[in-house]
Design a protein around this nucleic acid. Sequence first.
DNA 1: TCTGGGGTCCTAGGACCC
DNA 2: TCTGGGGTCCTAGGACCC
Length: 479
Amino acid sequence: MRARPVILHLDLDAFFTAVEQLHKPSLRGKPVVVGGVRGRGVVSTASYEARVFGLRSAMPTAEARRRCPNAAFLSPRFEAYRDASHAVMDLVRELTPLVEQVSIDEAYLDLTPEHPQADVALVGELVEGLRARIHARTGLTASVGAGTSKLVAKIHSDLAKPDGQIVVPPGEEAERLAPMAVRAIPGVGPATAARLTAHGIATVGRLAALELDEVVALLGKAHGTQLHAFARGEDDREVVTERAAKSVSAESTFETDVTDRVRLAEHVRRLTDRVGERLRADGLSGRTVVLKARRHDFSTLTRSTTLDQPTDADSVVARQALRLLDGLDVADGLRLLGVGVSGLSLYTQPDLLDGLLDDRPTPVRTSTVEDDDEFVRPDAGGGALPVDEPPVARGEVDTEGPAVRSPWRPGQDVEHAEHGRGWVQGSGVGRVTVRFEGPNTEVGRIRTFAEDDRALTPADPPVWQPAEPADDAADTTGP
DNA sequence: TCTGGGGTCCTAGGACCC
DNA sequence: TCTGGGGTCCTAGGACCC
């Protein structure tokens, strides 16, 4: 928590429908719904005119049509929403560089870099200005909450809707939260709310009055600890500008339940292609393939399998996903299938960039993971290796020793691709040498062995050791 | 009117290793 | 021969968010 109300949460009002109404004047002032328009679709966004009829996000479209037959029902046009979102976020970043975009229509801001001493009045003025610029430039309205933490900012952007703003003075957090329903706290969904209500806890104030032990006993360690703090208005989470993706997935729901294994397999292949395309577009590979299935009764199954090395290849992902599908009982029919890849690393398959590589210089690099004879740990020597530039290098892997494990197999082509990071994992006894070949320049080596003969521990990070400026490019096999 | 699609995080049990 | 405690990885499921 900060001493000053410098954390902001900005949320665009009824974003999807607002963009549609901007693009199509005939929709303005009318109930508009964006979402799945077909049989099993649900509402993504209902315009404020539609909310009068009780329409809400996540409501089945069929019910929305019944409640408000005259609304315009539109399929989402994500390109248009992305464009509008970019325009807004550009304006937001003019106010502060510390912006955490949490979704297409939402962001946290930290004003500290530009206005470390901001008080309630100044923050109010800055937010007024930002909202005015957003409206002038894009036609969209945004609501903003501001306070000493993400929690307070988020809760109050919601209360400010639509087209409003609230700046919470430091020190008033707990008293403002106390009368609210527990559902107001982010992270309290239907299940948690029901559990709390069953114990007579309906308001944030009641929750705040409990001992930590009691909340943990009720909700588990992680969730309980966090909610106990939140209920008291305590929240130390930072605004982080970038976060690495943890998984990539694609799923879809059938118009009617499917039992035919041939159709299901075809669908798995289509989903796999979408996932693979996105992995390669982002330069990612993953080790764990997940198949998701939803049954006729809406219960959800997941089956997963973990590969020895990461992949971004459709064929590899598809083979695993199909194998997982084989193990599923589909006799009662499936309503949804999904394919996902997790355990991601910034690692690009050799074949992807082959065409692009031909004209580039390919410097020599050597990466070595070593260990002494006694110490065996699967994670010794693992981790991200800092590889600065040039952006792409490729070469061949040698492994020695009985217990070496590496995502790179002997003889395999490997590359450090555009992201400036690569990785090597050794299992202790033996060693992995990644030897990059090209013009006679070695730019450096990665060393993970201990200098003084003690056992290697996971705390020993891989070290990037630049090559001597001189000419010894011949020795590229290790220390 | 049955309930989308993209994610994140947590829990819990079992395997395996030291 | 029996016993234990810690740590990591993997798998499955569930809550939650937009």
